[in-house]
Deep mutational scan, measured.
Amino acid sequence: EPLWIRPDAPSRCTWQLGRPASESPHHHTAPAKSPKILPDILKKIGDTPMVRINKIGKKFGLKCELLAKCEFFNAGGSVKDRISLRMIEDAERDGTLKPGDTIIEPTSGNTGIGLALAAAVRGYRCIIVMPEKMSSEKVDVLRALGAEIVRTPTNARFDSPESHVGVAWRLKNEIPNSHILDQYRNASNPLAHYDTTADEILQQCDGKLDMLVASVGTGGTITGIARKLKEKCPGCRIIGVDPEGSILAEPEELNQTEQTTYEVEGIGYDFIPTVLDRTVVDKWFKSNDEEAFTFARMLIAQEGLLCGGSAGSTVAVAVKAAQELQEGQRCVVILPDSVRNYMTKFLSDRWMLQKGFLKEEDLTEKKPWWWHLRVQELGLSAPLTVLPTITCGHTIEILREKGFDQAPVVDEAGVILGMVTLGNMLSSLLAGKVQPSDQVGKVIYKQFKQIRLTDTLGRLSHILEMDHFALVVHEQIQYHSTGKSSQRQMVFGVVTAIDLLNFVAAQERDQK
């Protein structure tokens, strides 16, 4: 057995438009009618409502009807409940999964919650491996369901041993009777949507819809739904939504950006999952974080739909894509998950301010006199920076000697690579993860907040409520011999709460 199987392995699926269902090699399930009293909570997966979006479509000038398939009504709160249950049931049916076995899954959280929910009911041990950027709410729900959680670096490539995929496979090879159901490759993922989600949409719309818009992560949702719609409703256009920084969209030119990270969760990847059939997507749109969270908040405030950030991405694209539809036509959007997962993220004004998705003037509360002053007023001194090749031991000596707790790590040209902190280095040394002679590049981390000289002290204040420091950066445009230009970030300084307090105190003292 291989040590790991690539999540982007070539698909062996034989589905073709027009091929009889009787030739399918898979076990198919028909939607079942729910009894009045459910035998367990797993029976509350599927049969989610279709809700008309009344205000947002009109606000953006849509002539067509805009409908939302509300997947956050599933038992675990997301569309991923469907595939989690289906993968477990299919693994039980073919004898792969037996009582007492362990389920391991690399996930952005929602599939993990679905699997942990099913594992709690069915009696399996469950280990979820997820990147650090995923919300604390997801972690809390997983723990409450009895799952064990392993976190991995957000910026690790999918084929790196440190990625959530790599760590999951390492655990599988170490733990007896453990299984990775593997949402990236498992046919049960798109089949769950082909058999149930798509049929529900067709039934709820009486077979009449002209466009379907869905955000894409593993691709199982859009693949399964689109294949069924292509068979039953061939005139329906399928629109895929991919965040900026991901590479799922086609044509490839759409993916060209210097951005590699994004805040919206559960969609987009740096590889093409095996289950994603991009041939059934008629057109791709890219979405960005700001519009995703703005539209998610709009869905909550104006439509009462308590959905997550990827739902915002989907609707932001839908109001663009559906401009081509006329009166009497219908566009369906998939709202994948609930706001429950993001209470401390985009639902929080403070978080939105820190990330730059909300401006101070958007909030009406009274601010102190210094709130709208610029960061450049602080008069920061030149920063202490270190090269990635310097040793951890030497870096600790320098920081202690100069009285700093942290320093930016830059390359020879001064471009920011990340940050090192005294606390992080000492804990890594004590844990045996690094040696004093190791290069400081081994303990770089990139989960820090950046701020510009033109940003306000109010925004800085919000950042420092949650973080010990902020890195002050400025952009530099560099022209190359080819005539092309590129933008790079340079370090201007490091600012802490002490710097802000000293500035405010000094100004008030001078005024007296």
Rank of each mutant, 00 (worst) to 15 (best):
D455R: 02
L363F: 11
F271H: 04
D337I: 01
W369K: 07
W370M: 05
L353C: 14
A497D: 12
L347S: 00
R278H: 02
N255P: 08
Y269L: 01
S246V: 00
T261L: 07
Y479D: 05
T261C: 09
S485D: 11
I477D: 08
V409F: 08
L254V: 07
P251I: 06
G328I: 07
R340M: 06
V410M: 15
T260E: 14
Q450N: 11
Q256G: 15
E465F: 05
T421K: 10
E361P: 10
H474F: 09
K366N: 13
M298F: 04
Q447K: 15
P383K: 08
K484D: 02
E290D: 14
D405R: 09
V494D: 02
E244S: 09
F448G: 10
S287F: 13
Q447R: 15
I398G: 13
G266F: 02
L426R: 12
L306T: 05
D467N: 14
L399S: 01
D270N: 02
Q376R: 13
E412L: 14
V264F: 02
E303F: 05
E412V: 12
L422P: 04
A407S: 13
Q489A: 12
Q435S: 13
Q376W: 08
R330V: 13
R400W: 11
V275W: 00
H394Y: 15
A505W: 02
S313V: 14
G240L: 01
L453K: 10
R488Y: 13
D467K: 08
V280H: 03
N341L: 00
M490Y: 13
D455T: 11
V410L: 14
S461N: 13
M466G: 13
S246K: 03
L464P: 07
T314S: 14
V275C: 08
G308L: 00
F503Q: 01
L417T: 12
S461T: 11
Q406G: 13
F469K: 08
L453W: 08
T496Y: 03
D289Q: 00
S486Y: 13
S461R: 05
L426S: 14
D411G: 10
W369P: 07
R350D: 10
S481D: 09
L500G: 06
V494T: 06
E508V: 13
D438F: 15
L471W: 12
V440P: 07
R278I: 01
G240M: 00
T261P: 12
K433D: 02
